[in-house]
Structures are given as C-alpha cells and as structure tokens.
C-alpha cells in the first residue's frame, strides 16, 4: 500500500508536465503557423500600399489600409479609455477607498471585462443607431473604448492599490487634498504600472475584431475621416482568408503576421516597462 502513493505521485507528475508541454506547445504551434504562412507573403509593397481592385478580389496592393485603420481605431480608443479609466481607478482608490460602493464597482468592472466583444459590437451598433451614426472610425472608436475601459480601469485600480499606504498618509499630513494626492503622488508613484495597464488595453483593442465588425466597417481606403468606415488588421485576416484568390489569401496571412508582431512588441514592451521608468517611484 505504501508504494502506491509514490506510483500515484509519479503518474500525476507526468500528467502535469505533459499538460504544460501541450499548453506551451500550442502557443508555439500558433506562432509557427502564423510565421510560416505570413513571412513569404510579407514584403515592402504589402506594408506600404492599399489593396487595388477591391480587398476581396483584387490581386494587387497591400494592407496599409488595415494597418493604419487598426492604429487609428485602437489608438483613439486607448487614449479615451486611458482618460476615463484613470478617473475611475483614482475614484475607487482615493475617494471610495474600501467602501461597499468600491467593491460593487470592482465587481461590475470585472463583469464588463468578461463580456464578449460581439455583445459590445451589438450594443455599439444600437448606440450608433440612436446617435444617427453609420459604420465609421468614430463608431469603432466608441465601441472599442467600451471594450478597453474595464481593462484599463481595473488594471490601474490594482496598480494603484500596490502603492504603500503611508505615502498617502504623508501627503495628507502635509495638507494635500485628495485630488492633489491622487494626481501629484499616486499617479507619479505608479506611472510605469499605469502604462502597462494602457498597453494591456491597447493590445486587446488592436486584436479585437467582433466589436468593430459592425461599428467600424471595412474599406480599401486609408482612415482619413472620423465619419468614414475604417479597416482593421483582424478583419483584414477574417475577410481576406475566405477568398478563392491565392494573392488575397496571402494578404490575410501577412495581416495575421503583422498583427501578431504588434502584439508581441506590446507584450515585450509591457514586460520591460515594469522594470524601468521608475524615476518618480519612491521605495
């Protein structure tokens, strides 16, 4: 009997290591698929031209429309959600510290974080009908802001909560108001952390497709006006993958590679930021 427990230990250890290999291996497989298919399709023309003859059938041109569109959509939404999210996070941390209201709002933000982006898309579409907007860059930015806001707010909330409480007490003791404490002390102290929250949301915004599907539309053109539709990289993958034309499918593969590279850069930047940018941080 006493041997049995060691056999059990062994079996589960093997199973656990195997699971870890499968999980990490599937990431490797995904990256390998994207690189193997995307790299041959990627060239300078792909990155610097818009599609010619329509994105669905035209064989010429590249994905500049989708790259610029994605940057405009996610950039706009990230700026907006940064401003709104910082306000919410500071309110939670400085004004409503540890109240029942704060706990309820945190729960609401966590729930919002989990709502599928297709539901945000449907809701954004409903909002746009009320506002009289058509599928446009503005509509996409509004919807993506809703997607990103809970991420930014909740992540910043966690970051600010890590700041030592004595710092606030010191600030209050010097006669600073709550707003001054929030702005001059907490935001500086937690600057790098706040930035990682923003990058997290930016990554989600650039990769999100279902929310911009009805709200931003798709176009062959560069995004020049807030009222016109805007293309995006995820939708460039989705729409162009379904065609029978190999050149167009190549554009889909290239879009996926560009998208993955952007996400990788954001992820690496997040990681290296956590270590640096600590000029104002008091330890």
């Amino acid at each position: 009997m006493s041997r049995l427990k060691y056999v059990e230990e062994r079996i589960f250890l093997v199973l656990m290591v195997a699971s870890l290999v499968i999980v990490v291996g599937s990431l490797a497989m995904i990256l390998a698929t994207v690189v193997v298919r995307g790299l041959p399709a990627l060239n300078l023309a792909m990155l610097t031209q818009t599609p010619r003859g329509g994105y669905y059938l035209g064989k010429e041109g590249g994905i500049l429309n989708a790259i610029t569109g994605s940057l405009a959509l996610a950039g706009g939404a990230t700026v907006l959600s940064f401003v709104l999210g910082l306000a919410v996070a500071l309110y939670l941390q400085v004004f409503a510290t540890d109240t029942r209201l704060a706990h309820t709002i945190r729960l609401a933000l966590d729930v919002l974080w989990g709502i599928p982006s297709i539901v945000y898309g449907a809701f954004g579409f409903t909002l746009m009908l009320w506002m009289g907007l058509r599928a446009s860059l503005l509509g996409g930015i509004i919807t993506l802001t809703l997607v990103e806001l809970p991420i930014v707010a909740r992540a910043m909330d966690e970051v600010i909560a890590m700041a030592p409480f004595e710092l606030r007490e010191a600030s209050y003791a010097l006669g600073a108001t709550r707003l001054e404490t929030a702005w001059r002390v907490l935001v500086r102290q937690t600057g790098p952390g706040l930035l990682t929250a923003v990058l997290l949301a930016l990554g989600r915004g650039i990769g999100d497709a279902a929310s911009v599907l009805f709200t931003a539309g798709y176009t062959d053109r560069l995004p020049t006006s807030l009222m016109r539709p805007a293309a995006s990289l995820p939708l460039a993958v989705f729409f162009q993958l379904g065609t029978p034309v190999p050149e167009v499918r190549a554009r889909a593969h290239a879009s996926a590679l560009v998208l993955t590279i952007i996400i990788l850069i954001i992820s690496i930047a997040t990681r290296s930021l956590t270590g640096r940018l600590k000029r104002h941080v008091i330890r």
């Binding site: 990769g207 996400i263 954001i266």
Partner: peptide
C-alpha cells in the same frame, strides 16, 4: 500570458 493576448482571428487562422 502571451497566449491570453493573441487576437482571436489569429487563433481562427491557426
């Protein structure tokens, strides 16, 4: 963590 950040269309393409 990176697995969580990969966009869903990339999963779809895979």
């Amino acid at each position: 963590d990176l697995l969580a950040g990969i966009p869903s269309v990339v999963y779809g393409l895979w």
